[in-house]
Amino acid sequence: MTSKCEATVRTVGNLSVVSLSGEVDGSAAHVLSAAYEQAAADGPPAVLLDFAAVDYINSTGIALIVSVLAKARSEGRRVVASGLSDHYRLIFDITRLSDFIQLYADVDSAASGINEGAPA
């Protein structure tokens, strides 16, 4: 399967930021997994998944996000998210992912929120 998802990794404050773009579906498995490994390589306390440039997530994509969340939990690392549209915030509610991933409006508010321990 050819992936329509791309990921870049950078550091903002204490956060390792994975900026995703395109479509997060089953074909994004390798992209997401590799991006997380890269983001976690330096042992940051938290990884931010930024969905600002994502225009499509299906249920397989949600399952991939949970896999990342579970892997991070097993490593004692927080995963937070930013840039979700209202629609995908609702999807995170429906799937109850929002019970476990702190959501922020954007990367900057996530970076300051993580430092202050405050929600979005």
């Binding site: 299906n58 609702l90 429906i94």
Partner: peptide, 12 residues
Amino acid sequence: KARDAAFWAPNV
């Protein structure tokens, strides 16, 4: 409206 909106269950 998101193009996948109709594919998801409503929030219950």
